[in-house]
Amino acid sequence: MNILMIASGYEIGGVTYAMRNLCNELIARGHIVNMLNLPGISELPEGFDKRITLINLIGFAKYWNLSMAAVKKTVGIKKLWLLLLGIIKKATNKGPLWRRIVFNGLYIDKHYDISVAFRQSPVSYWLAKYKCDSDLSVGFWHTDADFENVSKLEDCLHYPDKICCVSDAITQQMINKYPQLRDKFSAVYNLFDASSIRALSDDTVSEYDSNMFNIVTVGRLSPSKKITRIPQICYVLKKKGLRFKWYIIGDGEERADIEKAITEYNVSDCMILLGAKSNPYPYIKNADLFVLTSVWESYGMVVTEALILGIPVVAGNYPALHEILYDGVN
């Protein structure tokens, strides 16, 4: 089959890893995979199969995600032109009009069996349905149906022919919330390359203290991950006289708040922010315990990755967790 993948970004995290694993598996099975290069990167991130062909945007389409920061970096006539384009975007971006304007000249000169919007977004879903010559358009869904920002995505749910939710729990949530679209939704789990995870985990970790009980959490520093809970937990554990260090792998908008809480609870000696890591697996493998503090996850890929590496897991009780972790069993 000829498959076109569409993604608006390749940030470090579970969705990008899941897309990489799916693309690589499709190619391993003999399919042809092309990638519509929305972010305008020069090459795919490390780990993506080199046989994936990037399709670059041309003309107006390159400015679909135009920001004022990009406008400020230009000079002369181009700056004036981009400023005008930015004003048009601001005036039309709340609905599909901006997409129709900026992608008007986009023509993908190839027929595909399937076009796949791998990140849920109005742009990706719309492109998969209306700008690709494909027999079937598919959108993946990687978020909780009750997530606070889901309302911004509701208008684009009718674009794909099928929507693949990454767990049974999310599939049922979506059916309950949008019963009129129930025939669109089905569960399609993310793939894991266990052998690759184990191989990548062999790198050394210099930050851990062999004299301490080492705990690790991997995730974005964002509200849903509830990493803001950890400083207080560390304070309680420290008062009990436990010897431990808790390492956080990830970055995000709550970093400043977490750093402030670490100072307020006086736990800088036992809670360490290591930032985002392109390869978090050595940190998971060499930990004594993996902890996921999220209040919700569409699935929780990192929990399965910790189990693959044989590390005990403690996680919050969100619905999809029961498809991975069985209390007292694994």
Rank of each mutant, 00 (worst) to 15 (best):
N2I: 04
S8Y: 12
Y10I: 05
E11S: 15
E11A: 14
G14V: 05
C23F: 02
C23M: 10
N24G: 01
E25T: 10
R29A: 12
N34C: 04
P39F: 08
G40L: 03
G40F: 11
G40V: 07
E43H: 09
L44D: 04
P45M: 08
E46G: 00
K50E: 13
N56P: 00
N56R: 07
K62S: 05
N65Y: 15
S67R: 15
M68A: 07
V71F: 14
V71D: 09
K73I: 12
K90I: 09
A91M: 13
T92I: 07
R100E: 14
V102R: 02
F103T: 02
G105E: 15
Y112T: 08
D113Y: 13
A117I: 03
S121K: 00
S121G: 13
S124G: 14
K129E: 12
D133G: 07
D133T: 09
S134K: 03
S134R: 03
D135T: 06
D135K: 13
S137L: 02
G139H: 08
G139Q: 09
F140I: 01
W141C: 10
H142F: 12
H142Y: 13
D144L: 08
D144V: 01
D146Q: 13
V150S: 08
L153D: 02
H158F: 10
H158S: 13
H158Y: 10
Y159W: 10
C165Q: 03
S167Q: 00
Q173Y: 04
K177I: 03
K177E: 00
P179Q: 02
D183S: 13
K184F: 04
F185G: 02
S186G: 07
Y189G: 05
S196H: 06
S196C: 09
I197R: 04
I197G: 04
R198H: 12
L200K: 15
L200D: 05
D202W: 05
D202M: 15
T204W: 05
F213Y: 15
N214K: 05
R220Q: 11
R220P: 02
S224Y: 02
T228A: 11
T228Y: 13
Y235N: 06
K239Y: 03
K239I: 10
G241Y: 14
F244Y: 15
K245D: 06
Y247L: 08
E253S: 15
E254D: 15
R255F: 05
I258D: 03
E259T: 13
T263M: 09
E264Y: 11
E264A: 12
Y265Q: 02
N266M: 12
N266T: 12
V267K: 02
V267I: 11
I272R: 06
A276H: 04
P282H: 05
K285T: 11
A287E: 07
A287H: 06
V295Y: 08
E297A: 09
Y299I: 01
V302I: 14
V303R: 00
G310S: 11
G310F: 15
N317Y: 09
N317K: 15
Y318R: 00
P319L: 10
Y326Q: 10
V329L: 13
